[in-house]
Nucleic acid binder design. Structure first.
Length: 574
RNA sequence: GGGCCUGUGGCUUAGCUAGGAUAUAGCGCUGGCCUUCUAAGCCAGACGCCUCGGGUUCGAAUCCCGACGGGCCCGCCA
């Protein structure tokens, strides 16, 4: 348990005892971190006011008089209906530093809990490169996976590949029937996703203008549905080729998934068919005159005309959603908890999926996490229309921007080293920018925001880390020292407090799926460190030298962990 | 038409689940700081009818109702 957590426990115990003393042993209360520097922890006394028939301010006063300052509690006071606790500064500074040092780089992590989590994310259609509109998905998913792992979960990340359906058949037709001279190759990037999207666009437009092409594609689709392996395999190969490009992009932003599951497997192994048979037998099932099957979900909290959830076509073939059901049943055999990171357009579908799972007798539900799409100032992005900013282009732009910055301030580094740092910083800036905003808020993509390297940005955190590393390099020999009497400056105590908050941030980010807490915390830590850096000398500090260097070491460790949680590199110089 | 999400200084944003202490931070703006360890930094300052209107409450950015603006969805598509 961290110092802050044990302090909170101590406060809770003391308040419980005082409440029992006043004759209210069952009174409920919670703790919160008060604003400003007034105190370290507060208990609001408003909720208990009614039951106790006393004014909050009076309750706070009475409690304050009954809670002695002891252990880690150095001061107790009542103010405006709050009971305020101050933690013994020395204990906090020493305890936090010792926690960090003794965990040997794993500060913030907790031991394995044995819970298997399956986290599906990204899962974009393999018909074109990943664009910024959907780039939140891999970044959110990967970051959540990292947080959950720190919290002891056994996480498997998974990409569900759509190798079934019209879009991917159109792509396959294009790649196999058009040659380079026929397509509008605007991309010069040597990656399958960027090359093939030109074929996809051309195939789409030909399908609309040329009836013969439309017929060929329809024919392919029919053969696909009928189980013609020559078609199915070609489509799969095309999707695999496209996916290769997407994987490269993802690896470029430090996202590597553990597993790829192909939609077609649920047709091939008969499990989608199984789902159909089981659903048909449920009391919610019905059949249209033409033979299509559906579930009526009006008893499942689904409103209006969305209660009809169709699970077969008229000809009896399965639909995307049917296969997704088979997929989720499969996931539940492999994991205790299933998390899906989805675009907000999937909200209704996800709800229907949950209802259908319940009908199938599945006692668990996937936990969806939704994000809003990123749009351009001129509107929605579209691969087919070519109105897009590709993630690859954003990354390249960010990396070259970072390179310019390094070139400006460093003359001592090799070309190769500068490129390496630029990569780390550019990618970090992109990830940070996506993470700093709550997923459900809609976002308009603007280059000047995406390439911001100052203030609340990825490079700000990375810079603080590089600065800490640089100081430690120059420090030479020192003895670790956690003696609080050597760290009496306001900036030092403040910095230690911020450090002490990290475990709780990881906990809240992982358990509450509120990963935007990470960038906020990282910024707060980097900022506290920069203030400390400006306020006191470290290397030439005389008596406090060892203690301050040790504090810098702690900051470096925690910054590295925050960055790692967000999937950002921690450069040792920049 | 119905459903879900969202609206906080010029711009971006935290806080909203569990209503309470002077509403968080960044960009931009004004002014200062590189002979202490990386100025991608630090310090100081200006900038807020928390979209609007009602309601609940001792108290509302936060809860409820209703407008209005933005997003998404309502396929036998994926």
């Amino acid at each position: 348990m961290s110092v802050m957590e044990s302090f909170e426990e101590e406060v809770r115990a003391a308040v419980s005892a005082a409440l029992a003393d006043m004759g209210f042993p069952d009174a409920e209360f919670r703790t919160e971190v008060p604003p400003g520097e007034s105190a370290d922890l507060a208990v609001p006394c408003f909720q208990m006011s009614k039951a106790m028939r006393k004014a909050p301010a009076q309750i706070a006063e009475e409690l304050a008089s009954r809670v002695p300052a002891s252990g880690h509690i150095s001061a107790v006071s009542a103010l405006n209906g709050y009971l305020n606790f101050t933690m013994d500064g020395d204990a906090l500074v020493r305890g936090t530093m010792e926690d960090i040092l003794s965990s040997e780089g794993a500060y913030g992590s907790v031991p394995a809990n044995g819970v298997r989590v399956n986290l599906e994310h990204t899962s974009t259609n393999p018909t074109g490169p990943i664009h910024v509109g959907r780039a939140r998905n891999p970044v959110i998913g990967d970051t959540l996976a990292r947080c959950l792992r720190m919290r002891g979960y056994d996480v498997t990340t998974e990409y569900y590949v759509n190798d079934v359906g019209k879009q991917v058949v159109i792509l396959t037709w294009g790649v196999n029937n058009l040659d380079e001279s026929q397509v509008d190759m605007t991309e010069d990037r040597d990656k399958t996703d960027h090359k093939w999207v030109a074929y996809y666009r051309k195939a789409n437009s030909l399908m609309e203008s040329d009836p013969e092409v439309a017929e060929q594609i329809s024919d392919m689709l029919r053969r696909f549905e009928a189980g013609d392996h020559s078609v199915i395999d070609t489509v799969r190969e095309t999707a695999e080729g496209m996916l290769g490009g997407l994987k490269e992009t993802l690896a470029g932003i430090n996202v590597v998934l553990d597993r790829y599951t192909w939609e077609s497997t649920f047709i091939a192994d008969g499990s989608a068919r199984d789902v159909v048979e089981r659903l048909k037998r449920s009391k919610y099932a019905g059949q249209e005159d033409n033979g299509a099957w559906y579930l009526d979900l009006k008893d499942f909290g689904i409103q209006g005309k969305n209660t009809k959830f169709t699970f077969t076509r008229a000809d009896g073939t399965t639909l995307y959603t049917t296969r997704d059901l088979a997929y989720h049943l499969d996931k539940f055999t492999r994991a205790d908890r299933v998390i899906d990171v989805l675009g907000e357009d999937q909200k209704l579908g996800s709800k229907q999926l949950c209802s259908a799972l319940e009908i199938l007798g599945c006692d668990r539900q996937p936990e969806p996490m939704f994000y809003s799409f990123v749009s351009l100032p001129e509107g929605k992005m579209s691969t087919r229309r070519g109105v897009v900013v590709y993630l690859d282009d954003l990354i390249d732009e960010a990396v070259s921007r970072a390179y310019e910055e390094i070139e400006k301030r460093r003359t001592d580094l090799s070309e190769e080293r500068m490129r390496e740092i630029a990569r780390t910083v550019g990618v970090g800036a992109v990830r940070y920018n996506i993470l700093r905003v709550q997923p459900e808020k809609q976002l308009v993509f603007r280059w000047e925001d995406a390439l911001n390297f100052d203030g609340n940005s990825g490079p700000f955190l990375q810079y603080a880390h590089a600065r800490a590393c640089s100081m430690l390099r120059k420090a030479g020999a020192y003895e670790r020292c956690t003696d609080p009497s050597k760290l009496r400056d306001e900036a030092e105590v403040r910095l230690a407090k911020v450090l002490s908050g990290f475990p709780a941030v990881v906990r809240d980010a992982a358990e509450g799926r509120r990963i935007h807490l990470l960038p906020a915390y990282g910024h707060e830590l980097a900022s506290a460190f920069n203030q400390f850096y400006a306020a006191v000398p470290v290397l030439g500090a005389g008596d406090s030298r060892d203690a301050r260097i040790t504090l810098v070491e702690c900051v470096r460790d925690v910054l590295r962990n925050v960055l790692q949680c967000m999937g950002m590199g921690a450069p040792e110089e920049m």
